[in-house]
Simulated scan of single mutants.
Amino acid sequence: MEEFKKKGAVDADKEIVFSRAIKAGKRIYYLDVKKNRKDEMFLAITESKKVVSGEGDDSQVSFEKHKIFLYKEDFEKFMNGLHEAIGFIEQEQGPIEPKHGNSNTENETETAPMSDEIKIDIDF
């Protein structure tokens, strides 16, 4: 019972104030803006991948999840590194071509034209 209380306190420490789900094939990326007890916000990025093991009636579905936490003081360094990594891929393999004809669901992001800058547009 005591462990449950501790876990509840940890969960309460991370209030979600904004969330966006991005569906990408078999994966879903969640961008959650959370607030800790000190009212400081940070970004939790979660990759969730559906994993099916077995076949037919014996198949079992589970989800593999990976998380990273990004704090305000690291946003600029993270964005610079992300921009550099994407630039490298574009230099080696050409620009990323937008996929047209996919039906966007409510939480799916739309593809914007590529430019030299990385822009994040988050709707509340």
Rank of each mutant, 00 (worst) to 15 (best):
A9N: 09
A9L: 09
A12H: 13
A12L: 11
D13N: 07
E15S: 06
E15L: 12
E15Q: 09
I16R: 00
V17P: 05
F18C: 06
S19N: 08
R20F: 05
R20I: 06
R20K: 09
K23D: 13
K23T: 12
G25Y: 00
K26W: 08
K26F: 15
R27V: 14
I28Y: 09
Y30D: 02
L31K: 06
D32R: 02
V33C: 01
V33G: 01
V33D: 02
K34G: 03
K34W: 05
N36E: 00
N36V: 12
R37Y: 14
R37G: 13
K38L: 07
K38D: 10
D39Q: 05
E40L: 13
E40C: 06
E40P: 02
M41T: 15
F42W: 02
L43Q: 00
L43S: 02
L43I: 00
L43R: 02
I45A: 04
T46V: 07
T46I: 00
E47T: 02
E47N: 03
K49V: 15
K49I: 15
S53V: 05
S53C: 00
G54R: 03
G56I: 10
D57M: 05
S59Q: 14
S59D: 07
S59E: 06
S59K: 04
Q60F: 15
Q60T: 14
V61R: 08
V61P: 04
S62K: 00
F63T: 04
F63Q: 03
H66W: 11
H66D: 09
H66Y: 14
K67W: 07
K67A: 08
K67C: 13
K67I: 13
L70S: 05
Y71R: 09
K72L: 10
D74V: 13
F75C: 01
E76Q: 09
F78T: 02
M79V: 12
L82C: 07
L82F: 13
H83V: 08
E84I: 01
E84G: 08
A85L: 11
A85V: 10
A85H: 11
I86W: 05
I86E: 12
I86T: 07
G87F: 13
G87C: 00
F88D: 08
I89A: 09
E90W: 07
E90L: 07
E90F: 07
Q91E: 12
E92F: 10
Q93T: 14
G94H: 02
G94W: 01
P95K: 07
I96K: 08
E97I: 15
E97V: 15
H100S: 15
H100K: 11
G101N: 03
N102G: 10
N102F: 12
S103Q: 11
N104A: 14
T105D: 14
